[in-house]
Nucleic acid binder design. Sequence first.
DNA 1: TAAAACTATACCAAAAAGGTATACTAAGAA
DNA 2: TTCTTAGTATACCTTTTTGGTATAGTTTTA
Lengths: 139, 139
Amino acid sequence: MQLNQATDYAFRAVLYLANNTSQEIIPAQTIADAEEIPMRFLLKIMRSLIQNGIVKSYRGIEGGYALAKLPEEITLLDVVQAVEGPVHLNRCLIDPKYCSKNGADTCAIHEALENIEKNLVSGLRNRNFAELVGKTQNN
Amino acid sequence: MQLNQATDYAFRAVLYLANNTSQEIIPAQTIADAEEIPMRFLLKIMRSLIQNGIVKSYRGIEGGYALAKLPEEITLLDVVQAVEGPVHLNRCLIDPKYCSKNGADTCAIHEALENIEKNLVSGLRNRNFAELVGKTQNN
DNA sequence: TAAAACTATACCAAAAAGGTATACTAAGAA
DNA sequence: TTCTTAGTATACCTTTTTGGTATAGTTTTA
């Protein structure tokens, strides 16, 4: 019942880029050093952010990363989904086949969790990185 | 970012006991059969529910389990915490030492997640087993 | 054309998840 | 009083996930 370490690193990497208001391209090593993220692991995490349209990458000398869209267009949910895939509180919410006998409509627990999950998802969607920028140091 | 299988089983076991309005003592095997939970695994899960005051156990012939309190006094949160321990969205919310450099008060992400977590926890706390009883078959 | 920087794949160790086994204890029935 | 049923306690085990690392390659630009 916890976001994983990769997601936490991703939050911090995205916030680092978002704090860089001059839209400069920032190399992975700079982010890794600033946020104390293992370099090779960060590179791997960045790729899932790229695949989900959250950041862009630039190769070669002077290469690095920048946000692919405005900070206000990137939510915590976007980052979580990019790194971990869809958010589901219980496996019966992924596929009804996990609901031991029947499906959603006959299971009181399923229905209760579905509601709680909806709230969690909208909580994550309601926070974007523009709100987080500048507020504090990003550490 | 998911409750584990043991928690799902625990929900179903507690609901099974709650649906048993006659307050009878029910042996583990009966619950295991009805809810398709591996018997030995269920016994293990039940012990954490006992330790958290959610169910009571009775040994010997005619032994088994019953709720330790009224269904309306048992929330989804109680069961989750009994099985998985405290709910925390991110490790920096468990202990500030996980926050890469400073503590909660200097980290925008920390603060955002803390709020979302509070909502999740109260969502779980707001649903009790009396509401789930009878609503549907417990499967 | 060499060096800097990201990419792609694959691998790996440690921890967690999910469950099983063994031996034991308590309670009631015979 | 002893046998059986049912939970307890502890330890073990296999598989999956987590959190990384390694190797080799590609792109860019000075």
